[in-house]
């Protein structure tokens, strides 16, 4: 266990990792990283390293779970045993069950589920290394994996957290800030529809602080959205080159 720092923001207004209060961690995204999946993406968000894969649309197993008028989304968020300081049991924890549900519900509004009745897609998210904000990075990657699978979407979904550390509202909490900080507000957002598809909070915030945290998180989402689009384009530019060769 690392010791708890006294102050999370220094006199110059910089955070433990040297970021300004409204600065994101470095984000790197790659699309189409797995050959067996129908769609996949890999994201590094700070020290988070997360793989997302999509299979489908395909026939539902078991069949009775299929719906006559729409496609069913299934999502499994899972952390590798070595992804955190102390080994995590590979069996799904209650936290993982909850996150699987909220991630699925964050992605679902973006997908035209009515185009694929009686079928389903499986979204698998594997956290290889965790550094705070895994659910957000998972959503960012999973949305790209769905797009990579060629499934029609209303918009991409991008996620980012804001929170409060010491006495300031800050963007994109990393592990220590999440654990020691006052509050954490993860937000998933569809930028073109101005729609929030995931919203959670823990900690204590005044209504004003909460509002500014949500707005700050949305600003962060917009920045990551630019990287998301770039990653998707890069994948298709590479495919184009391969085809032309």
């Amino acid at each position: 266990m690392s010791e708890k720092p006294e102050k999370l923001i220094d006199k110059k207004g910089l955070r433990l990792d040297g970021r300004k209060i409204d600065e994101l961690r470095p984000v790197k995204i790659e699309v189409g990283v797995l050959s067996n999946a129908d769609g996949s993406a890999y994201i590094e968000h700070g020290k988070n390293k997360i793989l997302a894969a999509v299979f489908g649309p395909r026939e539902m197993h078991p069949k009775h779970l299929s719906l006559p008028d729409r496609m069913v989304l299934r999502c499994r968020y899972h952390m590798a045993p070595f992804s955190v300081q102390e080994r995590k049991s590979p069996a799904p924890s209650r936290r993982e069950v909850e996150l699987s549900k909220v991630i699925r519900e964050a992605l679902e509004p973006a997908v035209f589920v009515e185009y694929y009745p009686r079928s389903g897609i499986d979204i698998f998210v594997e956290v290889l290394q965790a550094d705070g904000g895994t659910r957000c990075a998972s959503i960012t990657a999973a949305a790209l994996a769905i797009a990579d699978a060629g499934i029609p979407m209303r918009d991409l979904v991008v996620a980012c957290a804001a929170g409060k550390i010491d006495d300031k509202v800050v963007l994109d909490l990393m592990d220590t800030e999440d654990k020691v900080g006052v509050a954490d507000v993860p937000v998933a957002f569809m930028p073109n529809l101005n729609a929030v598809t995931l919203l959670q909070m823990d900690g204590i915030l005044t209504p004003d602080e909460f509002e500014s945290a949500v707005n700050l998180a949305i600003e962060g989402c917009k920045k990551i959205y630019a990287l998301q689009k770039e990653a998707l384009k890069t994948k298709y530019m590479n495919t184009k080159e391969e085809v032309e060769e």
Partner: peptide, 27 residues
């Protein structure tokens, strides 16, 4: 909580909220 501050939030269901609706909801 007792002070009227927000201490936990959870969105559920497969739809969305606009940022404006979220502020209205907290009120």
């Amino acid at each position: 909580n007792d002070d009227g501050n927000i201490c936990a939030i959870q969105k559920g269901g497969s739809g969305y909220f606009t940022p404006k609706q979220i502020v209205e909801a907290t009120k």
